[in-house]
Design a protein around this nucleic acid. Structure first.
Lengths: 209, 209
DNA sequence: AAAATTATAGTACAAATGTACTAATAATTA
DNA sequence: TAATTATTAGTACATTTGTACTATAATTTT
């Protein structure tokens, strides 16, 4: 990709994350980069295109890791790794979750695409849980839809802890990110069988040290 | 409050919830209500004022219930009731969470106010958990910060399940709302002592029936 | 080196937005 | 009923926004 084009994307991303999608105009980006608005529209005919490229970059990072998964390697370690990758990626593109509604309001194709991958990830994740129950890493379900709900919770927590932190005026320091990672992985702890609990503790200790 | 003023607030709220804060201009509201823009600015000199009033209405509903709590009445039932009231209220003012970032970008006083009540609610909620542990409704903590994290999770889930549902293209039907309520209350289940589990099941059965 | 293509700057423009202002009408008060 | 106040409509205006257009400048290709 062209150097200027890349710079536009990077600057736009930084500004979107900092101020929010709606608060960043094309001129804001051009000024920050010290290029002319004309140059900007040369590289991106429509403002939407910038957002679109950033969205698909975001998706690509996660998709790549998911695609690599071998069904036989399902483990608690994998869950930790996926949550970690998602945390990192969401942090990098934090405006996407924060401003998702206005984003899809202007771009129905993203809306459709997102609905599709959400459904795919859901199926994949529930499959992982089943495997882990078989492996006696997770205990059997005690309540109806227990693991479906657990998945949905992880999904929401992962998507919105950043927005929540920003709302409360917290800085996204490295320590804060690590603390939130812990907050999320602790959600699975009560569902672990004793074998799983041991591994969980090992993994947590490792991620802290 | 004046009739027109109230209608403006109600119409604005409905439109904000439906389309998002940024997508609703003063003319959108005026058109929907079939009044002139001049009339609108007569009742609200600045657009921000509309949002401000709605925000403080939102806060008032929840504050009122919290204020009524007698420290001796802390129980699982109370937790259920608070989550239920919060769910209802957040549903009614759903744009507030969804567009919070742009909201505070234009209104630092709301930002400050929100940070303060968040801190207050946090302290109150952690106090509730302590009481419930004393009562042996909740089991003792097994991990560092376990109940702090549990609170933070409930906070995030409560604030964002609506946004998450909308993002996934789900309609907010009554059934969907009930399902999400269940998803949230299930998060405390694994932390309950046997006494608490019995009560939890009773309460869940009651809220379903 | 000449020609052609790509990249950049600068400006222009229509549309939309929040808000201010004026005039008319409706409601209330004296 | 007359005067006053509150409410509403209509319009105007400065600003901002996304985008289009034109003219240079830089780079690449022939």
């Amino acid at each position: 990709m062209n150097k200027t084009k890349r710079q536009i994307l990077d600057t736009a991303l930084a500004l979107f994350n900092k101020r929010g999608l709606a608060q960043v105009s094309l001129r804001t980006i051009a000024d920050e980069l010290q290029i002319s608005p004309g140059n900007l529209t040369y590289h991106f005919k429509r403002r939407e295109e910038i957002v679109e490229v950033l969205y698909y970059e975001f998706v690509a990072v996660v998709d790549e890791r998911f695609a690599k998964i071998n069904p036989s390697e399902v483990s608690l370690r994998l869950i930790f790794e996926l949550i970690s990758i998602l945390t990192e990626t969401r942090l990098k593109y934090s405006f996407l979750m924060r401003d998702f509604i206005s984003l899809v309001a202007e771009n129905p194709s993203i809306k459709k695409h997102y609905a599709a991958i959400i459904e795919k990830r859901r199926r994949q994740s529930l499959f992982f849980f089943e495997k882990l129950i078989e492996q006696k890493v997770l205990r059997a379900a005690e309540l109806p839809d227990e693991y479906v709900f657990l998945y949905e919770r992880i999904q929401i927590l992962g998507n919105f802890w950043i927005t929540s932190a920003v709302m409360q005026g917290n800085k996204l320091t490295k320590a804060a990110v690590e603390r939130n990672f812990e907050m999320i992985v602790q959600v699975v702890y009560p569902y672990l069988a004793s074998k799983g609990q041991k591994e969980w503790k090992k993994l947590t200790a490792a991620s802290k040290g």
